[in-house]
Amino acid sequence: MNPTTQLFKGEVFFQNNLHLWVNRSSEDFTVPFHAHDFIEYCYVAEGKGFHHIERETFPVSKGLLFAIPVGFSHVFRPTSPDSLGNPLIVYNCLFDAHMVNQLAVVLQDPPILEHLTELQNSKSSYFSVFDRDGSIESLMQKLYREMSVPSIGSTTMLHTLLSQLVVTVYRQKYTEANKPDIQVANDFDQVIQYLEQHLHEAVTMSDLARISKWSIRHLQRMFQQHTGQSFGSFLQNLRIQKSCEFLRGSEHKISSIAELVGYRNIDSFNAVFKKIVGKAPTEYRKLYRS
């Protein structure tokens, strides 16, 4: 480890006997370049910036998750010191060797356990995956909520959610590495980007067929293959995820947020939001503000 690198120790974070800690932070220039004696999953939830790992620098934006093994030095930095309008928001999920041993009871797949052991023993390098379908962000949000507002069964729930996160990240890492048709995946990414940029509009499958040059039937298959959801279900979840970002990071009225993500009827927006998130938009905003 470089002598200018600080060592973050798990004993500072794991004060709840869980050997797990999850937070949501706005990155700045005060956190030092650091290594740690625990595994860390870092998920970029909002904004853009840079991730410095060892001797490399990676531009980062929403949807990237980095797995940092024990002993590897890293730090996030926003694009500029004046990033109040578009802060770099990162979820950090930390867990140590004790938690790896506890997860071994749940994780029955030897390759996944070996993968975790290699991260813990610094025998695996850092890596990143892209959250194509929002499943990683959803798990990070649930982990953060459960950690922030514990309730009956929270310990069990946290173990379950962390197990799901480990498996999801592992699947992303190895299915992406073995994916035969990268160009098709990249083309489909363009479709997703179009949706993200036009959430406020009434986007239809016909619109996507026109811009992608694929048939509607082929697009339906692509959504199932790449996201595990139908087009309608994926679009609905994408709109609610974006509305969560607005609720956390803006002062917009809820009616304005509903319009920004494509809902013209506030009652419909409230109903769908509560069904997916489990709380009404006003409750959700209060939870994160508190």
Rank of each mutant, 00 (worst) to 15 (best):
I240S: 00
T155N: 09
Y194R: 03
E196W: 06
Q141Y: 04
P32A: 00
G10I: 05
Q197P: 04
E118D: 14
P3E: 09
H19A: 11
R217D: 14
K123E: 15
L103Y: 04
I152L: 12
V272G: 01
Q108K: 14
L162F: 02
N86M: 13
Q190P: 02
C93H: 03
H200W: 06
G153C: 06
V31N: 12
S73E: 14
R55H: 13
V90L: 07
V166R: 04
T227Y: 09
L208P: 01
E146P: 00
A67S: 14
Q164Y: 04
M1P: 10
L113N: 14
P78A: 08
G262F: 03
V129G: 10
H98P: 00
G10D: 08
T282H: 14
N186R: 11
K173R: 15
T282R: 13
E176V: 00
D181K: 11
G47P: 05
T5Q: 03
S148D: 07
V149I: 13
G85E: 08
Q224V: 08
Q225D: 10
S255N: 10
K9A: 07
N23T: 11
T30P: 03
S80I: 11
D131N: 02
T227G: 06
E245I: 11
R221G: 00
R264G: 15
L208Q: 00
P180Y: 14
R264I: 11
T227E: 06
D96H: 03
L287T: 07
F273H: 03
V44T: 09
V169S: 02
S135I: 05
P281A: 01
G249S: 08
S124R: 15
N23R: 11
F66T: 07
D131S: 01
N270E: 13
L119D: 07
F14D: 06
I240P: 00
R217G: 13
R264P: 04
T79D: 11
P3L: 05
V12I: 14
G71H: 03
Q229T: 01
H218D: 07
K9S: 09
L107T: 06
S250G: 07
L260F: 07
Q224S: 10
R55Q: 15
L158V: 02
S148F: 10
T57D: 07
D189T: 03
R171I: 13
N237G: 08
S163Y: 09
Y170W: 15
L162G: 02
F273K: 01
A209P: 01
P281Y: 04
T5I: 09
Y263T: 08
D131K: 00
S151E: 12
R239N: 10
V184D: 13
L199W: 08
V203P: 00
E11Y: 08
E27Q: 15
P180T: 13
G47D: 04
E283G: 05
P59A: 11
I182Y: 11
R77C: 05
V277K: 10
D267W: 06
H36P: 02
K123V: 04
L165H: 04
C93L: 09
V184M: 12
R77D: 05
G278M: 03
Y288F: 15
K142Q: 15
F8M: 11
F58P: 00
T175K: 11
F14E: 12
P87M: 05
